[in-house]
Each structure stands twice: as structure tokens, then as C-alpha cells.
């Protein structure tokens, strides 16, 4: 992942395709890899996670991360729009400080503190992931919305667009690739952090890892960790490609953070 500097684009693409295929085989036919993983376990312990389906855990893991990131994107972009309008401009520095403070809260602390309020399960995980996704998306939305060339803004005004039209037809489309960069960062962080959600009984791939920790089964830890890492790498690449596409459409180069 990252810039594919050091290797050619085709090798990077090939690697990505292989990762995807291996991941899919693992999720649909995990027994294919049993001989390999069996080397890591002793005393005939199971080598493939057997307390639930890896596929359904992966799906709920993804669903939780997507839901939290989507909610955070909606709120952060909404707020970024508010504080870049004339009537909300005085909230800009404060909203920035608050998003920064939110980021210093450790996810484990947020998870555990959310439990008495919303109970065990998916909800505390959603809250922690949501909180963590706010800052990157908000910062990027601000960069995108404030970084427009003044000439573009003036041109839009010159052709007689109202404030709302300018926002919807000019500012947001032009800021979109930068916002997408923020969403990508937030989503990749969410995928990793979601595993911690299983300490408060959220159905994520963290279940597999924790089951491995509890029974000293390295094979479980490895397969849980690798699936999450593969999801993160593939989403990173997929979203980067999407950014390039939108950036090309709007004639603007996506600025990676």
C-alpha cells in the first residue's frame, strides 16, 4: 500500500489481486489453509476458527466500520460546511479544537465507558469508531472547502449562483476528492480499531483473535489479524483508486495527507 514507489504499478496491481483472491478463498473455503495453519497449533487444537463463521464475522466487521465511518462522514462534512459559511465561521477554531481533543481519547476507554450507557455489543463499538473517524474527515473537509482558489468562488458568484448553489455545484464537487482522502484514512483506522470492539462483545474479527489469546492458539490470532490487515490494505487501495477517479473528473489533484 502507500505510494507504489519501489515497485511498478503492474506488480502492485497483481499483488492486490492475489491478496483479494486469497482472502476470498480463506473466507469461503477456510479448510484449504488448514494444513498450513495446523503447523502453528499443538495438541490437535483446531487450526481454523470454529466458534462461528469467519465469513459472517468479516461481514459484520465491515458493516460496523462502514456504518461508523458513514455516520462520521455525514456529521463531519455537515459541520465543515457549517463552519465555512459566514454565519458559522466563528465556530471554526473551536470545532477544530474539539475534534482534536476527541482524537486523544483512547478507543479502549471510550468503548468501556460507553458500555454502561448503551450496553454491551455493537453500539459501544460504533460510538468509539465514530468518534475516532470524526477528526480525519473533518480536517480534510475543511482543507477541501477552504482550499478552493478564490477565482473559482468569484466565478461562481459572477455567473449568479446563490450561496446554496455554489456549495452544491462548485464547492462540494471540487472538495470531494480531499474529503474522500479523509474518509479513507478514517475507514482504515476503523477497520483496525473495530477488533477491540470484541472485548465488549461486538461481533467483529476481534472475536477470533481474542479466542486465540484465551486458548493460546496462535493460528486463530494469525488468521484474525491477517484478515483485518488484508481488508485494510484492500480498502486503502480501493478508496485511493476512487479518489484518483474523482480527482481526474474534477480536474484537481488529490492531496494525500
Amino acid at each position: 500500500m502507500g505510494g507504489s514507489s519501489g515497485m511498478t504499478i503492474t506488480t502492485a496491481r497483481l499483488l492486490r489481486a492475489v491478496t483479494l483472491v486469497v482472502l476470498l478463498i480463506f473466507l469461503f473455503r477456510p479448510e484449504t489453509f488448514e494444513p498450513m495453519l495446523a503447523l502453528l497449533v499443538a495438541n490437535n487444537a483446531p487450526a481454523i476458527y470454529n466458534q462461528g463463521s469467519l465469513l459472517s464475522l468479516t461481514i459484520s466487521h465491515l458493516a460496523i466500520a462502514i456504518a461508523a465511518t458513514a455516520a462520521a462522514a455525514l456529521i463531519s462534512v455537515g459541520f465543515a460546511i457549517l463552519v465555512t459559511r459566514d454565519f458559522g465561521r466563528e465556530f471554526l477554531p473551536l470545532s477544530r479544537s474539539v475534534a482534536n481533543i476527541g482524537q486523544t481519547f483512547p478507543p479502549v476507554a471510550v468503548l468501556a465507558l460507553a458500555v454502561p450507557i448503551v450496553g454491551f455489543g455493537t453500539k459501544p463499538t460504533l460510538i468509539a469508531l465514530f468518534l475516532y473517524a470524526l477528526l480525519p474527515i473533518f480536517e480534510n473537509a475543511l482543507t477541501g472547502l477552504t482550499g478552493l482558489a478564490p477565482t473559482v468562488r468569484e466565478a461562481a458568484r459572477g455567473v449568479g449562483m446563490t450561496g446554496f448553489q455554489r456549495l452544491l455545484r462548485v464547492e462540494l464537487p471540487l472538495a470531494f476528492p480531499v474529503i474522500l482522502t479523509g474518509i479513507r484514512l478514517a475507514f482504515v483506522i476503523s477497520l483496525g480499531t473495530a477488533t477491540i470492539g470484541s472485548t465488549v462483545a461486538a461481533p467483529t474479527l476481534g472475536e477470533v483473535i481474542i479466542a486465540g489469546l484465551l486458548s493460546s492458539n496462535t493460528a486463530f490470532v494469525l488468521q484474525g489479524g491477517i484478515i483485518v490487515a488484508a481488508l485494510a490494505v484492500l480498502s486503502y487501495d480501493g478508496l485511493t483508486a476512487l479518489e484518483r477517479l474523482t480527482a481526474r473528473r474534477t480536474g484537481r489533484v488529490a492531496t494525500a495527507v
Binding site: M1, G2, G3, S5, G6, M7, L40, V188, L191, G192, T193, T195, I196, L205, G206, I209, I210, G212, L213, S216, T218, V221, L222, G224, G225, I226, V228, A229, A232, V233, Y236
Partner: peptide, 28 residues
């Protein structure tokens, strides 16, 4: 320059391994 790409790529990928898994994988 030749070192930069590979080193940053490896470190980047390491960051995607969830923390509890990395903690667990170091046990063995």
C-alpha cells in the same frame, strides 16, 4: 532513495495489523 519505498511500505502494512493481533502474534 532506494530504501525509502520498501521501508515505508513495510511499516505502513504493519500499521494495518490490528493491535490485539500483533500483541498476540509476538507471544509465540
Amino acid at each position: 532513495r532506494a530504501v525509502r519505498g520498501p521501508v515505508l511500505s513495510v511499516l505502513n502494512i504493519m500499521q494495518t495489523v490490528p493491535s490485539i493481533a500483533l500483541f498476540g502474534l509476538l507471544i509465540a
